[in-house]
Each structure stands twice: as C-alpha cells, then as structure tokens.
C-alpha cells in the first residue's frame, strides 16, 4: 500500500523531514501490511466492541467543591502571564 506519510504527519502535527519520508513510508507500509492480516477473518455482521462492561450513564452528584488553585495548574506552563497561558499570536 502507498501511504501518504506527509498527509498523515500533518494530521498528527508531526514534522517529517524530506530525507526521512522514504524511511517512514516503508516502515508504515510494513506495519500496515502486518495489520492487514485481519482481512483473513470473516467479520460480516460482527458487532464492534465499544466497552468491556456495559456501564450506563455514570453521573456524579451535582455538588460544588474546590477546584485546583490556578497557580498550581499554571506552574507547569512553558509560558504564562497574568494568570493565562501564553501562545504565539494567531490573529494579525
């Protein structure tokens, strides 16, 4: 199978150097050929498994409680200012 690794990488927000494109195409093709063996099975009319145990609508009580302090959450931010995350400008 011919896989458009540049397209997949763009969807996944990964950068692939031109020099690595061939390596990635080949590796992806090998792994997908490996997974293609699922086609040996007849899966017509087989339901997909979506969860291990049927758990219906898990709700919690609507009680108010303390939230995490803002400083504690922001402590891990690579860049912050005045209690906000800082990201590169997106609107000119």
């Amino acid at each position: 199978m011919n896989i458009d690794v540049k397209h997949i990488a763009a969807l996944a927000k990964l950068k692939i150097d031109q020099s690595e494109e061939e390596k990635w195409s080949e590796q992806m093709a090998n792994i997908i050929a490996f997974a293609d063996r699922l086609n040996e099975l007849n899966l017509q009319e087989i339901q997909e498994t979506e969860q291990h145990y049927t758990v219906f609508n898990v709700f919690r009580d609507d009680e108010k409680g303390p939230s995490y302090p803002r400083e504690k959450i922001l402590a891990n931010a690579p860049e912050k200012e005045d209690g906000y995350y800082v990201v590169p400008k997106i609107v000119e």
């Binding site: 699922l38 099975l41 899966l43 087989i46 997909e48 498994t49 979506e50």
Partner: peptide, 11 residues
C-alpha cells in the same frame, strides 16, 4: 482498520 480491529475484539 479501526472498525475491523474492534470487530475482531468482539470475536
């Protein structure tokens, strides 16, 4: 792929 794998999961 994904759907098929989830079907195999059932089996």
């Amino acid at each position: 792929y994904y759907k098929k794998a989830q079907q195999v999961r059932t089996l």
